[in-house]
Design a protein around this nucleic acid. Structure first.
Length: 231
DNA sequence: AAAATATCCAACCGCGGTCTT
DNA sequence: GAAGACCGCGGTTGGATATTT
């Protein structure tokens, strides 16, 4: 099926919305609703495509939008839901009233993902190129290139990851890799981020065969994310 | 103080799913 | 059932601003 371009008519405005446009859009939706996004801009007298209007409304102008920083509870919820749902931002947003999928996606890429990368050093982004390369690109290129992280002292047992997919860990492989070994001392160090000694029970569980999913759950349960050093 | 680099986030793009004709 | 239209989603971009060199 061939789809017509969103803004096939030339002359439709793009880019940041003005206060006046916002006012027109809000006023129109308050009065008439948004039955048909495609027709809305014409009816409201906006030189925008319907898609742009919908995005502006759902991500910014909706009256129930919650602005401001994310609370620790919200961050934990996002991390937890991302573990189970993957990049299904709209599904995650549905669990966080007042937050939009776009906002959650931004927060994930700019902040929470780094927080998790900080726990698993092998997944840290590469140093950024010197010139004009966006961070997101750097992270994603890196994610694509990093195919596995060794979670054990065994030289052959490794865990394949795909950060762009809905599951962080997709399969086990027997391929030897070069990333640092995440062994008992590593987890011992990580688990001491609060200055507390890791429990023998927790240490006994870090035998190297656990997935990142497992460890992220352990951290979530322990509330460790809130205590990690800022990046 | 100026230039370079990093960060944030609003907005755009393209695809897939669903609905309508 | 096929074709087209529309909507929503996830990925990506680019401008504004902050920070570093």
């Amino acid at each position: 099926m061939v789809r017509a371009p969103c803004c096939e008519k030339m002359g439709l405005k793009k880019g940041p919305w003005t206060a006046e446009e916002d006012q027109i859009l809000v006023s129109y939706i308050n009065n008439f609703g948004h039955g048909n996004w495609r027709a809305l801009p014409k009816l409201a007298g906006l030189l925008r495509c319907g898609k742009s209007c919908r995005l502006r409304w759902t991500n910014y102008l909706r009256p129930d939008i919650k602005r401001g920083n994310f609370s620790k509870e919200e961050e934990d919820t996002i991390i937890s839901l991302h573990q189970s749902l993957g990049n299904r931002w709209s599904a995650i947003a549905a669990q966080l009233p007042g937050r939009t999928d776009n906002e959650i996606k931004n927060v994930w890429h700019t902040y929470l993902k780094k927080k998790i990368d900080n726990i698993v050093p092998g997944l840290k982004p590469k140093p950024k190129p010197k010139k004009n390369t966006k961070n997101v690109k750097c992270l994603e290129t890196n994610a694509a290139e990093i195919s596995a992280v060794n979670l054990s002292e065994s030289p052959s047992r490794s865990c394949s990851t795909d950060l762009s997919s809905s599951s962080m860990i997709t399969e086990w492989t027997d391929t030897a890799i070069e990333f640092p070994v995440i062994d008992e001392s590593f987890w011992s160090e990580v688990m001491s981020v609060n200055g507390d000694e890791p429990s023998p029970e927790l240490l006994s569980r870090s035998n190297g065969d656990e997935s990142m999913d497992f460890w992220l759950r352990v951290f979530m349960e322990a509330g460790e994310f809130g205590e990690l050093p800022e990046i």
